[in-house]
Amino acid sequence: MAQRVVPGAVWRDTSGKVIQAHGGGVTPEGAYWYWFGEDRSQDLPKERRAVHVYRSRDLMTWEDRGRALEMGEPAEYVAQYGTDWQLERPKVFVAAPGSKHRYVMYVHLDAAYKAAEVGVAVADRMEGPYTLVKHFRPLGEESRDIGQFVDDDGTNYLIFEARPTKGFFIAKLSADALEVVEKTAFVPAPLEGGAVVRTGGLYFCIGSHMTGWKPNPDVYATAKSLAGPWSTFQNLAPPEMNTYGGQSAELLKVAGRDGRPDAVIFIGDIWKPQALWDSRYLWMPLQVRNGAMMLPKPEPWSIDVNTGAVKIFHTAEGVTE
């Protein structure tokens, strides 16, 4: 049977274990794609937080590479906020050649949802282990949900939601990816789960309304320049479907070849707040045509990462997963 992704199903790695990579992001390098996400395993001690990493050659089958980051609450958080802390939405950037650390992980680091910072961890190998080196508010603003974007010229950008501003920022990182150096755009929309992709000569940004763990209709906007101006937001899927139960985490582009357009994959989470370890993944190729973007009904699918060719296994073809 051909390999395929079944959105919303239990997704297991090559050893048969359930994948723990929630709120995550995918970073390509060499022959592999690396998927980093929150490890919500039940056996993880309550005082610890971890980021798990998996790698794949085809985006469909994933090999467990262990915990890339595991840590306890920063002492300064304990002193100021107590022991209610969060480490969420990890995203890994590849720094410019010659940087002190080649791989830089950004996370939403928080305590009682009052610190509202990013944490920065570094490693000399993509798979880690990563070490937290600092945490701060980027551009002096609160930062909650974060996302990553790497433009076609290789420039790294951090996306972060700043709740008091009722919008989110797209900010350029330094060449070594350790600093948030300048605001590229501010998108004045009160959204979280922000993600950006460039395809077909346009930039697309998506986000989720602020309803906590409860799904809602994700929306998207477009711009000819990353700096904007951005169009008005439109629904990514029929609004009554509430993004098919998912929430955005990243937009992953697989370059199209042999005359094919780029494939853009919606990477999202179907959260189960009472059983986070069993939260599922909503990965689905988007339909992008004539400046419009749509998340179709989730169905099993496969992809050829060498060409960007996507195949959807419609129920009419006998697929019942």
Rank of each mutant, 00 (worst) to 15 (best):
R49F: 00
G37K: 04
Y32D: 03
G66I: 05
P97C: 00
W62H: 10
Y103F: 14
F36C: 06
A75M: 11
R57Q: 13
A96N: 06
G98H: 08
G82N: 03
E63C: 10
R102P: 02
V92G: 05
D43G: 01
D39Q: 08
R89V: 00
D43N: 12
L69Q: 03
V78N: 10
E88C: 00
E47W: 15
G98C: 07
R65N: 08
K91V: 10
Y34E: 11
V78I: 12
Y32Q: 01
S56I: 05
V51R: 05
F36P: 12
V94W: 00
S99H: 02
F93P: 00
E88R: 09
W85N: 05
F93Y: 11
P90W: 10
L59Q: 10
D84V: 12
H52N: 11
V51C: 11
Y54H: 09
Q80G: 09
E38S: 02
D84Q: 12
Y103S: 03
P45D: 03
P97L: 00
R57A: 13
G66N: 05
G98R: 06
R89L: 01
D43T: 02
G98D: 09
A50Y: 14
H101Q: 07
Q42M: 13
H101Y: 12
L44S: 03
P74K: 01
E88W: 07
R49K: 15
W62F: 08
G37N: 03
E38Q: 09
A75K: 12
Y54V: 14
W85Y: 12
G82R: 09
W35S: 13
A95W: 11
R65K: 14
A96F: 14
R55M: 01
R48D: 10
K46A: 15
K91H: 13
A31S: 12
P45F: 00
R102K: 09
F93T: 03
R48T: 09
A96M: 06
P45K: 00
F36R: 13
E38R: 03
R55T: 04
E47Y: 15
Y77T: 08
R57T: 12
K100Y: 07
G66W: 05
A95L: 11
G98T: 09
V94Q: 00
T61V: 06
E88P: 01
E29Q: 15
Q86M: 13
W62L: 06
